[in-house]
Amino acid sequence: MSGLPWFIGKRILQAIVTLFILITLLFFMFRILPGDPTTMFVDAALPVEAREAVLAQFGLDKPLHEQYWLYMKNFIQGDFGMSFTSREPVMDVIGHYILPTVFLMGSTILLAVIVAIVLGALTAWYRGTKFEAIVVSIALFFRSAPIFWIGMVALALLSHRLNLFPIGGMYDPGKDTSSFFGTYFNLEFIHHLLLPSIVGAAYYVANPMLVMRSSMIEIMEDDFIELSRAKGLKERHVIFRHAVRNSLLPVVTEIALLVGFAIGGQVLLEVVFNWPGIGRLIVDSIQRNDYPVAQATFFLMGVIVIFLNLVSDILYGYLDPRVSYK
């Protein structure tokens, strides 16, 4: 019993157990948190009876183990319940916010990875030069500063002072957003997307870049690089055709980790740049004690991280035939 199918099967089973534990933890975690979804009532000065009625409508008046049982039963059937604040099925709620997040996160990570690979390769190639010292210090500076801080400084300088970028949001108020293409494929959207993507990428770039750099340094000492040079290939050719390709392997795992990491940063990016995505939904749902939405968004994060780790493990074998699945 070995080989790829067995390996994948085992890993999927592991993933399922992990997710089960995760959803259970999430369920109890949010209920242990102080307050309940009716803490907002104080603000609206609703009567005591209203609070009781709402708790009953949400089933929160039942004992905890009964609530858990019901939740798990629905969960297995793919039903994440109803949002407490909008009384809409949780999956529909997430559906409203997912696209903006996919676009922002996708462009951030893409930008970070491309820049990381290029700079990682170059810093390795020009090891010991001033160029390397400057690039590495800048990358580490952005990595060490909190993402929201970089975002705020960038906004203050580039948007408020220099008027180069919009101050946030996905487009200027009053734009027609009825069609998908009209919303996401135009210059205005890209203009709004640019600054948060750059800020996010600046923050994420250091890790994969350093991994790329050390991997590259190792590869550069290999014989085949020597050989390519001996063949008389151009230096550029040697770096990008031979060295970079062979150094990419560890970066693949790093990217999987980066995505998990980026979800956390996404929350801050969306708040600072007023981006209408999942990140703000997470913040709002926790503040409003909207358990079903909060649970589902955290669960979704867990699924993404676990899934990507699985994919990177499988991809490893494909990219490097020396790796075997046991």
Binding site: H160, I167, G168, P173
Partner: peptide
């Protein structure tokens, strides 16, 4: 127009948005 917090809202008023 919903903003993520009061700061972003004030910035929008300041910027004429």
């Amino acid at each position: 127009i919903p903003y993520s917090n009061t700061e972003t809202m004030v910035a929008a008023v300041d910027k004429g948005q």
